[in-house]
Design a binder for these strands. Structure first.
Lengths: 196, 196
DNA sequence: TCGCTACTTTACACAGTGTAAAGTTGACAC
DNA sequence: GTGTCAACTTTACACTGTGTAAAGTAGCGA
């Protein structure tokens, strides 16, 4: 099943992505994805050993499709720590909507499924690294507030930027995506940057 | 089954509470609760029609056991908006640990179960009211920042104080309960109170 | 024609929730 | 003592969704 560039595999991933993105959060089942990809449910298991691995593969597929690495590169090029923080908040904040569907499915699984848990943690650690880098740049500039340690500041930024928070503000509170980024940026600056 | 003050019913609720509190998040099944309450799994359904309703009843049981209303009363008595905000953050922030177990179970169900969803939303709206009251008091004092509307400020405070955020800071980031309350309080003040 | 690959089809194990119904036990009523 | 009622127990089964297993098929290249 020569993993990469397999047309059926790609079709499965596209179907999974579409279904997961289309908000139908509650239940995207293996059979739904199979139907969308126009193969039998069993054939799915020829390509992906479990639902968890299919979700993980879908996440990676999304990352590649959106060239997230390139976007992150940009935020790393910012001159000051302050610019780097805002660039990071914007980049990640605007990426959340694209991964939200898959993330939600993965989040729902992580309480029962070890594999899903590991995959989710892995993804979230990547986000944490982004936060840590921004905070470190702030610290280097001597712009980090003094009532939080560098690690605490990272913890807080990471929490502030969580998918759950985005979900709540965006859907429960009906904020627009623009307002979300704007407000979260402002709060991050106020909480983490000295003398604001 | 004469609902209130039924000894078996109470034993069930106590067992549910204990199991849910003891961190074993992943799966507290009906059969686990039955075993702990020393009755058959079927007898559980004589007292509660569904898992969701049992969880909801457990939440209410916890609220009564901790006399949450009395605690909220206290935060309502604060003189200034500022004091009211800190009182609210402390009250709710310190109540989260006690309801965390049940909340987690309810959160996990809300994606698939309508009843659980309704119950969860109901609970969260109550929390939101607490946030709204604190923000309103701030506004009355003319102490609310001007870059957020009253509603936006409520939305943000509500999101900041979410159980998920507490969970992440407390367990993923290993913050102590004291540090959590302290930091969240500081951030709330910085973000919502004018001229800080 | 062989044999391989990528499937389909059918069947079934398993977990957990919830339904259904028949049987047991103890208390209280008369 | 017998009847009856409530609060159970026990057994059995339907349903959903995941994952395993195995036999069958269609197309394609050597």
């Amino acid at each position: 099943m020569s993993s990469k560039n397999n047309p059926t595999r790609t079709r499965i991933l596209k179907s999974a992505r579409t279904l997961l993105e289309s908000g139908n959060a509650g239940g995207v089942r293996m059979s739904d994805i199979a139907k969308a990809a126009k193969i039998s449910r069993q054939a799915l298991y020829l390509h992906f050993p479990s639902r968890a691995e299919l979700l993980v593969a879908t996440t990676r597929y999304l990352d590649e499709a959106h060239d997230i690495d390139k976007k992150l590169e940009k935020s790393r090029m910012a001159a000051s720590g302050l610019e780097r923080l805002t660039a990071w908040v914007e980049t990640w904040g605007n990426y959340i909507p694209t991964i939200y569907g898959v993330s939600k499915a993965l989040m729902a699984m992580k309480d029962t499924d070890k594999e899903a848990m590991a995959a989710w943690n892995d993804r979230m650690q990547a986000v944490r690294h982004g936060c840590a880098a921004a905070v470190a740049a702030l610290k280097t500039d001597g712009a980090l507030v003094d009532w939080l340690t560098e690690e605490e500041a990272t913890d807080f930024l990471w929490t502030l930027l969580s998918v759950r928070n985005w979900e709540q503000l965006r859907f429960e509170c009906n904020w627009t995506q623009e307002r979300y980024v704007e407000a979260v940026e402002a709060i991050a600056l106020q909480s983490l940057v000295r003398g604001r």
